[in-house]
Design a protein around this nucleic acid. Structure first.
Lengths: 345, 345
DNA sequence: TCCAATTTGAGGTTCGAACATCAAGAGAAA
DNA sequence: TTTCTCTTGATGTTCGAACCTCAAATTGGA
C-alpha cells in the first residue's frame, strides 16, 4: 500500500514551497546564498512530498565520467582468475554508467611492487579497488592515494589500519571458524587428527582463516587433534605431496581443511590412496573442480565468497562514493557462503 | 588492461559509419526504413567501437514510469514480514528510477482470493510480483495478467506451469535436501529418529522441502528413522506442543527439522525439557530469534533465502523486462544460504 | 533614510538518447 | 522520362536535474 503517485520533480517542490526553481536547486545541492528559513521550508516540502531526484536525469546532468582501477594479484590462483573475469563483466556494466575500469595485475607476494604500482596510480583515477597486502609500504601507498583525493576500496583482503574508504570482502576469521565448526560437527564425536593446509601464512586472509579455524577446533572439539599447518603455496602438486605424506604418517586422520587453493591436489592424493570420501575434506572457493568434488563426495563442504558479488559491490561502492549517491549497506555485505552437495548454484 | 577511452556516443557511431544520427538511431531502435546493408554497417561500427547507450540518457529520454504491484501473503509469518519490509526499501530505491511499487497482502491459504486479487490488477500495473500458490485458479489468473501484456514474476513460491516470466526464489527441493545432508552429517553415524515438522503440506515450498529432505534422509542415512511429518500451521504454540510430545514419545530422537516457521516453539520445548543443544535442530529463515538460537547452540544450522535479495531481484527483473534493458542472470540467482553460528552476517 | 550586502527569481545551456517530421535523394517500374 | 516508393539526412523537441549568469527584490546596518 506504499503508493507514490506519478512523479514529483524539483519544479513541484519549488512551486509547493513558493520559491523559484533556482532556489530549490540551491538548497538541494548545498549551494550558498539561501536564507536558513527558506532552505528549511524547501527541505520540509521535499520531505512532505517525498521528492527523490530522478537518478537518470541527475547522472546525465552531472555528466561526469569516472575512472576506476582494479588491482588484483597475478598468478594462477583460481579465485583471482574468477574475480578478474567478474571484473571484466562489471566493467561492461559500468561502461553504460559512464564509469570505466582498468584492470591491473601485480605480484601478490611483493609488497614493494604492489605499493609502487599503487603510487603510480595517483591522479590517474577517481577510485581504486585493490586486493591488498597488509604491509607498511602498502598501507602508506593506500594512504597516499586517499590523501590525493582518490577513493580506495580494499577487496577480498583488507588493510584495516589504512585510510581505505571501505572493505569489500568477508571476515576471514569467521570463515575459518565456520570451517572449524563444520569439521567439528561432521566428525560427530569421532576422535582423531585434523590436517591443516595453508597457502602461505604471509597472506592476511590465510592467516586469519587459520586463526579462526584453530580457535574453534582447539576450543570446542578436544577430541580432534590439530596437526601443524603445512604450506602449499597454493600449488596442486604441493598439496598433493602434503596429503600423500599425511595419509602415510597419520593413521587416525579424520579431516583436512585447506585454507587456500590446491584442492585438486588433495583430491588426487585422496583418490590415489583410495580414501576419497573417507576423510572429511573442506576447502575454499567454488570452482568447476570443487563443485565436482562436492558432487562426488570427495569434498564435504566448500566455503565461498562470491567473486561476482565482490566485484560488483566494489564497483557500486566506488561509484557511490565518487558521485555522492547513497549506498545500501545491507546489499554490500559479502556473505560467507557454505556449499554442500545439495545447495550448489 | 580492459581500457575504454572516455565515452562513445551515438554521434560517434553515426559519423564513423558515414550515416546521419537519424539513421543510426533508426538502426539501434529497430525502426523501419533502413536498407539492410546500411543497418549492417552501423551495427559493425557499434561493435567495433564498443558503443553502449548511456543508461541515464536512455532512461530519461524514454521517460516512462513503471508501476509494479507486489502481492504477499498476509498473516504473522516472520519471513513474509521481512520480505514486506524489504519490499518497502526496494520501493524507495525504485522511486528514484521512475518506478513505483504498491504492496498488497492477501490470505495465503485462499487461492480464490489470491486469484481474484490478481485479476483485479489487470491493466493497472506494468508488472506484478506475487508469492504464488500452485492452484489452477491462480495459474489462470497469472496467465490472464500475462495475456494482458503485464510482466508477472513469481516470488519465493513458484507456479512453474503458468506463463510467469521469471521465478525469483530458491529451489525448495534442494533446500530440503540441504537440510537432510546437514542433519545426516551432523548425526555422524548416530542411529535414531528424526522429527519433521511442516507448516502445511498445502504450501508448495513446504511440500518441496519435505520431499527433498525425505529423499536424502531415507536414501542416504539408513541409520536415521524419519518420523511422520507433523503439521504446525507455522504457529509457535503448535510446534512447541509437537516437540514436547516428541520428546516424551521418542526416546531416541536425534534431530528435528522444521520446514516452516515456529522455531521459537521448538526452542521453548527443548529448553523446557533441558534438551537444548542435545538434539540436532535445523530450521529455516534467519530472524532475530533463529540467530539467537544459533548463537546459543539451540539450533545447529539455519537455511535461509535472503529477503532483501529476493525483493531487489524481483524489482530488477520487472524493470528490465518492462524497459527492455539487459539482465545479468547470475546476479538474479537466489542462493540457498546455510548459516551456522560462525558465519552469521 | 540610504547604501551595501545578501537573497531570490528568471532564464538559459548542457548532458545523450528517443522519437517525430519533413524534405531531399536514390532507385525501380511504367 | 516520369512517377512513385523506399532510404536517408537535417533538424527539432522532450525528459529532469545541474550549473551558470544577471537582474531584481529584500534585508540589515549605519
Amino acid at each position: 500500500m506504499s503508493r507514490v503517485s506519478s512523479r514529483i520533480t524539483l519544479q513541484d517542490v519549488a512551486r509547493e514551497a513558493g520559491v523559484s526553481l533556482a532556489t530549490a536547486d540551491r538548497v538541494l545541492n548545498g549551494r550558498a546564498g539561501v536564507r536558513g528559513a527558506t532552505a528549511e521550508r524547501v527541505r520540509d516540502v521535499v520531505a512532505r512530498l517525498g521528492y527523490r531526484p530522478n537518478a537518470a536525469a541527475a547522472r546525465l546532468a552531472r555528466g561526469e565520467t569516472y575512472r576506476f582501477c582494479f588491482v588484483l594479484p597475478s598468478g594462477p590462483n583460481v579465485f583471482m582468475r574468477q574475480l578478474a573475469e567478474q571484473v571484466t563483466n562489471t566493467a561492461e556494466w559500468l561502461s553504460t554508467h559512464n564509469a570505466f575500469i582498468d584492470l591491473l595485475r601485480v605480484d601478490v607476494f611483493a609488497p614493494e611492487a604492489l605499493a609502487s604500482t599503487l603510487e603510480a596510480l595517483i591522479g590517474r583515477y577517481d577510485g581504486v579497488a585493490v586486493v591488498a597486502l597488509d604491509h607498511p609500504r602498502v598501507r602508506s601507498a593506500i594512504d597516499d592515494l586517499t590523501a590525493a583525493g582518490m577513493v580506495v576500496v580494499t577487496l577480498v583482503s583488507d588493510v584495516p589500519s589504512s585510510h581505505r574508504r571501505h572493505y569489500v570482502g568477508v571476515d576471514n576469521i569467521a570463515a575459518g571458524r565456520t570451517a572449524g565448526t563444520l569439521i567439528g560437527r561432521f566428525a560427530g564425536g569421532r576422535q582423531g587428527s585434523v590436517g591443516l593446509i595453508v597457502g602461505t601464512p604471509a597472506l592476511r586472509d590465510h592467516a586469519e582463516r587459520q586463526f579462526g579455524f584453530t580457535q574453534v577446533l582447539s576450543g570446542e572439539y578436544p577430541g580432534l587433534k590439530l596437526l601443524a599447518a603445512q604450506e602449499s603455496l597454493d600449488e596442486d602438486v604441493r598439496t598433493q605431496a602434503i596429503v600423500e605424506q599425511m595419509l602415510r604418517d597419520v593413521p587416525d586422520l579424520v579431516a583436512i581443511y585447506n585454507v587456500g587453493a590446491g584442492n585438486s591436489g588433495i583430491a588426487a592424493a585422496l583418490a590415489a590412496a583410495g580414501q576419497a570420501g573417507e576423510r572429511i575434506f573442506i576447502g575454499h572457493d567454488l570452482t568447476d573442480d570443487t563443485r565436482r568434488f562436492l558432487l562426488r563426495g570427495v569434498m564435504d563442504a566448500v566455503i565461498n565468497q562470491d567473486a561476482g558479488h565482490q566485484s560488483r559491490s566494489a564497483a557500486r561502492v566506488l561509484l557511490a562514493h565518487c558521485s555522492g549517491e547513497p549506498l545500501f549497506d545491507e546489499q554490500e555485505r559479502i556473505r560467507i557462503d557454505i556449499f554442500v552437495r545439495d545447495n550448489l548454484p
